[in-house]
Every structure is written in C-alpha cells, then in structure tokens.
Design a protein around this nucleic acid. Structure first.
Lengths: 246, 246
DNA sequence: TCAAAAGTGTTCTTATTACACCCATGG
DNA sequence: CCATGGGTGTAATAAGAACACTTTTGA
C-alpha cells in the first residue's frame, strides 16, 4: 500500500454526550457496550460518520436513534484524535453534546437494544475508550456556555419552578447559589413568564410555575446575551488568588 | 467496494490559524496555494494528519514547518467536516489556532516556498475551501479566551508598553478601551513587571517597558484566572438589550 | 515651539454579595 | 401542629464607566 492510501486508512466517528436533568441532578445517557472492544463497559453513544453525511447530521442521527428526539440543542465541542484512542485502528471522533428534556426521552428500540441508561454526571465510573475525557470536555463546555447563554431551559420541562431552575444551575456549576440573589437575577432578565399556576400535590407550599419567553430567549441566544451567574466563580477565584500570591 | 471500506475512504487534516500582532494590528499567516484546487488563492496552512500522528502533533508540525517555532500557544477549536468542503474527496479538518510573537517568526524555506504572508485579520479576502469560516471560528474563540485567560502576552515581544498591550486587546476585541481604566485593571492584576526601562528613539514621550510575570502568569493560566475586560461587552450588551425589548 | 503619545485620579453608577424570617400546603 | 420547601428586601461592598489635563520627548 502506498503512502497516500495510508492516509485513507482511518475512520471518523461522532460521540454524543446527552445531558438531561432529573431529580435535581445532571444526568448523562450512556450505553452498555454489547461487543468488543470494551464489551460490557459503559460508553457514550456514537457511530461512524457515513461517507455522505455531515458531522452534525451524524451527531443528530445518533441522538435520534437513541432518544427519538430531533431539533434539540446540539453543539460540537471538539475532536479527539490520539493515535491509540481506539484499539482497532485510527479513529478520530468528534464530540457533540446535547441538552434534552429528560421527560421527552422515550426508550426507543435502539436505546433498549443498547441498554441505554441515565447516569449522574458526578457518579460516572470508568468508561470505554477515552470517553471519560470526552465527557469532561463536554461538561466543561456546558459549564462555560451556561454562563453566557440561557441554555439551561433546554434541560427543563416547559413549566418549571424557580427552585428547579436554581438546582439545575447548581448541579451544572457544581456550587451553591443564594436563593434570593438567584431569583433576583433570573427575574431581572425578563426571560421568564409567570404562568399564574402552582405546583400541585406537594407536601409544602406549592411553588409558582414559569415558562421561558421563547421570543426573548431566541433573541438572546442569537445575539449572545451575557447570561452571567458569577457568584461561585468569584468565590473560587478569590480562593485561588490567595493561593497564587503565596 | 463494500460499505466498511467506504468508511475508510476519507482523510483528515489539520488547519492552523496562526495569529500575530504587528503595527497595532492583529494578523494571520496565510499561504498562497501553488496547486489545485484553489490554485493561487490564499489559504490557511494545513496538512493531512499522518497515520501515526496525534492531531495536536500534526498541528504543531505544520506550525513548525512554516514558522520555525515550537512550544507556542496552540489550541484546538473544532472540526469542520461538511461533506462537500473539499472538492477532491471527503476531508475532515481539525482547526487549531496559535499565538506567536511575530518578531520571532522567521521566513523558513517552507514558508518561502509556500509564499506565506501576514494579512490583517480585518482585511482577509476570500480564502480557499471553507477557510473563511475556520478563521472566523478561531478568531471568535480567541475573543472568548482573551477575556478569560491572559494569553494576550503570547502575541507580544518580551518587553512591551501598556499602550501596545491596550492596542492588542482593542484589535482582538474589536472595540476601544479607556486608557486609564485599562491601565488600572491590568496593573491591578499584578501580572506585569515594570522593567524601569523606556522606549528609545520615539518622537514623543517614551513609554515605560513591562514584561509579564512568568510565575504568576503560569499560575493564572493553569488555574483558569478570570481575566475579564468587560467594558466593551457591556456597551454592546446594553445596545442589544434595548433593541431586544422593542 | 509644536506634534505626538505617555501618564495619571476622582466621582458616579451599577452589580454583587451577605444575610433571616414568615408563608402555604399536606400529612 | 408540624415538617417541608416557597417566597421575599435591604444594606454594605466592589467593580465598572466616564471623563481632561499635564508631561516628556524628537523634530
């Protein structure tokens, strides 16, 4: 085989980090591998990219096959291409992450066959391939994006309470937020519509339900609204700075 | 040819957006293509990735061959993989950008042969392939990163004036910054060392020279220091918000 | 002495933080 | 009537923004 052909002896795949939010916890959808390599290990869903398929199309296809969902938030993070990342050959993978409303997720035949299961992001164990690294990169990117763009809503059902929203941010940012400051800030953005409805059947004062304002939301997404939730950032930072001075 | 072989009938490349700063202007190093496709057009430097080469190694190699530089700031942005992005076949490319001190750049045989030339980022014309899109993505990423990490120094000579630093930020962020506020903020970060030297041979009051504090710089880089220069962001934001309310 | 860029403080405004009690509901 | 989480405001501090004149040098 000549050298030029060698360049073509490689494949590329997409892997998807599918985030959901449930029970106050950020989750990721993993599949149990049914074949070698890494048979029996948990892995990110992914597939080789078809020769006539765009990368984002492939990522959307993997998501659709597994969850039955389309038109959801899907964003590329980066490529992972270490020479030895795949034991069977040179496979470069392009990582995407998506944000879905976990309540919309249905167990599809594909996901059933593949034994798909939600795992808490904080409790994910040792994954196949370099998938732990991919997951970290995607989670890190989510943490960045959530500070800049109001994408958190993609993870919530259409009607939600402010406490649910706060818990979502807390689990993404891995920090605690002050309830009053959080509400003040979120409401001041005028992204939420008060539905004049309340929770039912809870054993405490029922919370008001909100939905987000699609129109403003789209304007903010496309214009790059600075959606900053910095409390925790600053706390972490000031600790770091003290350390750095020493 | 069977389907599995089809998956391997594709190649991947790296493309590098090499940024430099000179004459108060952010520059990018482009090469004039000597062969089809896009013969005679300006393009980003890039190459196919060798079968036994990591992606970042390939990106570093392209940079080294063209500029003679190694150990410079190099970061992946993302993959570009539209089916039709390369007229000769399916080629996915991974985009990297690097920040170099333009004064360190030497015209190497490779760069000479390839007719490498610095172009102002703001005046780049129509490039080969999807290279305009790649350049935009890398420039956008640089704009994000420069707000968060003190990487601007990678683009300056070891000794620089505060005005040079300000102009660098202004050309990256595409905005004007207030001189007094900028100086106050930069100096308060204690990242700069006053060298007690001044410019020579300038037809005006000579400016003091600074270098950056390697030790603190490294600490900040690795710990993710929040290096925020927000003036312009807020200006843009408040304009945007007014519009969005209408 | 003129042109050109360097250098320098203060005030106002806005954003962030810290913090504690009463309320509504179901069991 | 108790347990549970919902809901609310204010004061102190810190950060950001606006703004104009004097200084030093070479030509």
């Amino acid at each position: 085989m000549n050298e030029v052909n060698n360049f073509f002896k490689s494949a590329f795949s997409v892997d998807g980090v599918i985030f959901g939010f449930d029970e106050g916890d950020l989750k990721v959808l993993l599949i149990k591998r049914g074949e070698e390599p890494y048979k029996g290990k948990w892995a990110l869903p992914g597939d080789l990219v078809y020769p006539n398929e765009d990368l984002s199309t492939a990522a959307g296809r993997v998501l659709l096959e597994l969850t039955g969902l389309k038109n959801v938030f899907l964003e590329q993070v980066r490529a992972f291409g270490e020479v030895d990342r795949h034991p069977l050959g040179r496979v470069i993978t392009i990582a995407y992450f998506s944000l879905i409303k976990i309540s919309d997720y249905e167990v599809t035949p594909a996901s059933f066959a593949k034994k798909a299961q939600w795992h808490s992001v904080s409790e994910v164990g040792d994954l196949a391939f370099d998938h732990n690294e991919i997951l970290s990169a995607c989670f890190g990117r989510l943490q960045e994006i959530v500070r800049t763009r109001p994408v958190g809503f993609e993870l919530l059902p259409p009607k939600f309470t402010l406490t649910e929203l706060q818990h979502l941010y807390e689990s993404i940012l891995e920090t605690d937020l002050d309830k009053r400051n959080f509400r003040k800030k979120i409401l001041s953005m005028k992204l939420l519509v008060d539905l004049d409805e309340t929770q039912e059947g809870v054993a405490h004062r029922p919370a008001k339900l909100y939905e987000f304002d699609q129109k403003r939301y789209r304007a903010f997404i496309s214009e790059g609204f600075s959606f900053e939730l910095k409390e925790s950032k600053r706390k972490a930072l000031s600790k770091m700075k003290e350390g750095a001075i020493l």
